[in-house]
């Protein structure tokens, strides 16, 4: 354990407690608006972790995309539908609860395995740690080393975008149908 001092551990501990409480709050809250807000807090804390780890670019992207864009849309939909209160309905999926237990067990096993088998080789890349997470470094990696996965991801997003346009777009036929209905 090199390079750890008391203040770093203290900051980490405080942030970790906030992150875990926010995650629990999200799961246990009955009101879905509060659930969404707890998730925003959680994203914010994770972004702070990125800053501490020397990756400001990822941190800002995390806040902009997840806390800022996606969660605002979540809130928008919750409020638009008035779906704040969760009620027990007969449409609950019966296999969800056992499935979640299986998945939690799997996650804990993997985490345990990683923690036990980690090789403590000290801090990686200590010489260029300051520039490692900078925007230009991330850009270089994305557009040179990982250009293929990057482009594949962008095509995936494009497909999703076109899908939305096709599903919601008003076609000529539909417009005519609407007009005839009005008459």
């Amino acid at each position: 354990m090199t390079g750890l001092n008391i203040s770093e551990v203290a900051v980490f501990a405080i942030l970790a407690i906030i992150a875990i409480s926010a995650a629990l709050g999200m799961l246990l809250s009955n009101n879905s608006v509060y659930s969404a807000l707890f998730l925003v807090v959680n994203f914010g804390v994770v972004a702070t972790f990125y800053v501490i780890l020397g990756a400001p670019f990822i941190a800002m992207a995390q806040v902009t995309v997840y806390a800022g864009a996606i969660m605002v849309l979540f809130l928008f939909v919750i409020m638009l539908l008035g779906a704040e209160r969760i009620q027990k309905s007969r449409h609950d999926l019966p296999w969800q609860r056992p499935m979640s237990i299986v998945l939690i067990a799997l996650l804990l096993t993997v985490t345990f395995y990683v923690v036990v088998n980690q090789n403590d080789s000290g801090p990686l890349l200590s010489q260029n740690l300051t520039s490692y997470g900078s925007p230009s470094a991330v850009g270089q990696l994305l557009f040179q080393e990982y250009i293929l996965p990057f482009e594949v991801t962008s095509i995936l997003l494009l497909a999703a975008m076109i899908g939305v346009v096709v599903l919601t777009g008003v076609t000529k036929r539909r417009r005519r149908a609407r007009r005839s209905r009005r008459l």
Binding site: T64, A67, G68, V72, L75
Partner: peptide, 8 residues
């Protein structure tokens, strides 16, 4: 980032 969370 700050502008995007200002809507809350």
């Amino acid at each position: 980032a700050i502008a995007s969370i200002a809507v809350y």
